[in-house]
Write a protein that binds this DNA or RNA. Structure first.
Lengths: 293, 293
DNA sequence: ATGTCTTACGGAAGACGTAATAATA
DNA sequence: TATTATTACGTCTTCCGTAAGACAT
């Protein structure tokens, strides 16, 4: 049963009038007549009783209308929903990241995503550790891959996307640079560079204030990651980073030391609790795929 | 969305293989590819992710399949049900009647019915009052219009179709032929002709054995209606008939007297309890229409 | 005479198959 | 190389509108 036959039949079953039916469908009057006749021939019995003055459904016609109408509506809706869902995942989605590996992941997901949603553009934006949630709260990015823990009432944390070994960055002339194994206890003899503006629970998690034995760890704050790098290069202190960041930020004057006795760095995907749009959903779903295999 | 597009999409969603899909649909391989592409252009995003080696549904495609499949199935079923119901109302339907008015009604309904169900043939058969249920029990007729009351465990009585005034048939030379008004009490002075073979409750209802004052009514039995007519014409007794039967059975030697103090004759439509077929249903539904206006 | 449904006919859209092309394992 | 999906092109079905016909009010 062809679409145009269903439409002719259902419209005529509603209008009970060939001319009005043809007008509603944008067809010539004769077309409706012939389409209905063809359908009736296929079914084997008239669906309408008609004189030149009155059109009415037969029992078979009424039954068919009752069965067909919901199916037709659902079909229409399925198509409309599909186009609407595609349209909802169009426009620009800005994704924040605070680590270059996350950026690579995002760009990878963006490729797959724009293949599936041709009208979607994914833009990326670096997020400074000193203000990790400003951009997402200000809608400068709609979704973000960032270091955990994140515990903000207005932000949803989806899950751990990946985790990285933590390394300690020290100046190549620093005594620790030649240690075989560095631990938290050693930090009492350094200045740890952390970031102002981070929530306290995050700062305490990533940049402890005391060593395990209780000695205070001297600290200094930087505003940007690049600034922290420069400070380490200048011998002003040490700081943490995830292992693979070395591929992006290696410097002659800095060595990246394994730091196995401190937890790895987990990265998660977050978005505003009231910003769970189709775009964001699609991105989160799209970034799921590649991670699992 | 065209039928061939739905079929191509749903089949491909099941097979995940263009060649197998084209074979199942009896199409060329390229056709499937182009049909899917067209659908994807209309929706605005790919429904399948394909390489030359693997085909898989995208999220949009999977959603569309979930929404579309039930609608498509229901549509198919609606059409199949319609053709099946037409086919079920085809062949020969034999209808019994015991009164010429009923025959006219049946023929009228049969005309409308064969217009609605071209493959149905309606035949009529006269039923003798002496054996009112033999033919319907022997499947010589499948439905029957007959005098009420009918109270048989294996027969369904639908409803009263119409009712007719009862008249008394007497020979023109009989003294009652000149009465201004005849009552049951007068029958004590006549011989009432009834029919053998009728169930007792029917015979007692139509042919009382006593007058209201308790006098017995002499009686004689006939085997056929025509026989009863002849007997009345020969002055051998009186009998009952419904008023309009006079149009069919008027004779010079018989007068039809009003008999207002005895109930009218009700006619009902009956069929075997285990013979409620689509044909019968269609006939009963078809005979409903003309009666109501 | 008007409004309705049906029938006849010519043109255009598009669904189809064939066959060549591109990509992947 | 074999198997797959895509693209190009010519054919043919059939959907369509126009216009005339048939019928009822």
């Amino acid at each position: 049963m062809e679409r145009h036959e269903m439409e002719a039949f259902l419209t005529l079953a509603e209008e009970l009038h060939f001319r009005r039916t043809s007008e509603r469908l944008g067809l010539a009057q004769g077309r409706v007549s012939q389409t209905i006749q063809k359908l009736e021939r296929r079914i084997g019995a008239p669906l309408f009783e008609r004189t030149s003055r009155r059109v009415s459904l037969t029992a078979v016609g009424a039954q068919l209308r009752d069965d067909l109408l919901p199916a037709y509506r659902q079909m229409q809706r399925a198509l409309a929903d599909a186009t609407a869902s595609v349209k909802a995942v169009s426009g620009v989605l800005r994704v924040g990241y605070s680590s270059p590996m996350a950026a690579a992941l995002i760009l990878d997901a963006a490729d797959r995503l724009t293949a599936r949603y041709p009208d979607l553009e994914v833009q990326i934006q670096e997020i400074q550790l000193a203000d990790p949630f400003g951009p997402i709260r200000g809608d400068q990015v709609q979704v973000q891959i960032t270091e955990l823990p994140v515990d903000e009432p207005d932000l949803v944390v989806d899950r751990i996307l990946f985790s990285e070994e933590r390394k300690l960055l020290v100046n190549r002339d620093h005594p620790l640079a030649r240690s075989s194994e560095v631990t938290l206890e050693d930090l009492a003899d350094t200045t740890l560079i952390s970031f102002a503006g981070m929530p306290l629970y995050m700062e305490d998690y990533h940049y402890p204030r005391l060593t395990p034995s209780g000695r205070p760890i001297p600290r200094k704050e930087a505003a940007f990651w690049q600034e922290a790098l420069v400070m380490v290069g200048a011998g002003k202190g040490v700081t943490f980073a995830c292992a693979r960041a070395e591929e992006y930020y290696a410097r002659q004057d800095t060595v990246w030391l394994p730091f196995p006795h401190f937890p790895r760095i987990d990265y998660g995907i977050i978005w505003p609790r009231n910003g769970n749009t189709a775009r964001v959903q699609a991105f989160v779903g799209g970034i799921t795929g590649p991670r699992t295999p």
